[in-house]
Simulated scan of single mutants.
Amino acid sequence: MAGTDFHILCGFLGSGKTTLLLDWLALPEAADTAILVNDVGRFDVDGAVVGRTSGALPLAMLANGCVCCSVGNELVATVERLVAERAATGAAPFRRMILECSGLSRPGPVIRSLTDLGAHDFRVRVLATFDPAQGAQHAAHFEEAAAQLAAARTVVLSRLDLPDAPAPAAGARAAQALNPYARIVAEPDRARRAALAFRPGPGSAPPPGPGIVGLRSLLHPRIGLFVARVPDGLPWDAVAAWIEDLAARCGDRLLRTKGLVRVDGIDGPVLIQGVGTVFSPPMRMPAARDDEPVGAVVVIAHDATLEMLAEAGAPHGVAVEAG
């Protein structure tokens, strides 16, 4: 396919991001990849480690702070430089670019920074590492970990090759409970795990069916799963106004929003999806299957109440219930 896959590789502190990246760089499939590494400290230790393995692959280090809050402009400028240098050689565009974020980065602001690169044919994907032994606790107690997992299109279980690692099936269930949308990679073999993590694929997936396990199964008191019931046939202006009110009311507490709705004047369901307060343009989808819950938009939020979300939806005819 034409264009470049832009992977935002995130995961909480110590969850195995750098190990996964190093395993990927050791594979022949890593050719035509550009690497960007960010660390929160003054010295980019991860960048130095990756630099020893990346060989001839382009590598850029962003060491001026957490990429989601302090180096957005540097990220854009660095990506532009790498793309321009590649074009100057006469080579085809990078097949993929991988940004390894610091363990404290939130994906939403990073995606917002990348909107300044709209002239490029990037397919942006969020990839999160998840330690089955500690990941659920991290998500319960640290907002950054919850935001990373909720935003991910792919969640990769790490440390499965260790002797005392939990069973892959148990880790997969824990990860799926935190993000019912995600593709879960639960592969003990490190090389195969890396290959599966970065394989090409579509940029978005349909929302889960109604039988998928939800966040309450893990009893995370600070992470809530809600369902917004959007009536069929609302004009798009009303849906857009609800989205704006939802983002404004929740702010940084909003982690993930995704669902199919029927909009007046549009043939077929429309996919709504957002990471944090950043929403993708609405996408018209093929006719819904019988098992797809059209009109039910799942909202994952941190430290938010049902009343807060209900107040944002009521003026627009959107009812909200606990997931």
Rank of each mutant, 00 (worst) to 15 (best):
A152S: 01
R262A: 15
G90C: 11
D267W: 09
P235R: 07
G16K: 01
V320N: 04
A238Y: 00
G65Y: 03
V263A: 08
A170N: 07
R183E: 10
G47C: 03
I184A: 01
G55P: 15
P180Q: 09
C68T: 05
I35G: 14
M61I: 01
E307C: 03
A60K: 14
A169R: 06
V71K: 01
R159H: 08
P315Q: 11
A174N: 07
I184K: 08
S70Y: 03
D291R: 08
M285F: 00
V83F: 11
R86G: 14
L162E: 10
P200N: 15
P109V: 00
T89M: 12
R123T: 10
A310V: 10
W24L: 15
G224I: 04
P28I: 13
L114M: 09
V320S: 08
P58C: 13
N64D: 13
A151K: 02
A31G: 13
D121Q: 13
L22H: 07
T305M: 10
G203L: 07
H220I: 13
G317I: 08
G41W: 05
W242T: 07
G108K: 02
P188N: 09
N73Q: 06
D161M: 09
L36F: 15
A312S: 12
D5V: 10
D116M: 06
L27D: 14
A228Q: 04
A145D: 09
G211R: 14
G16T: 09
D23L: 06
D32S: 14
F226N: 04
G209I: 07
A167I: 06
K17V: 05
Y181Q: 10
G224M: 02
V239N: 03
V79Y: 12
G224C: 00
G90N: 11
A84N: 13
S54N: 04
S204C: 04
D131Q: 05
D290Q: 06
G214T: 12
A26Y: 05
L21H: 07
Q273Y: 00
A247W: 00
P202E: 07
A165F: 02
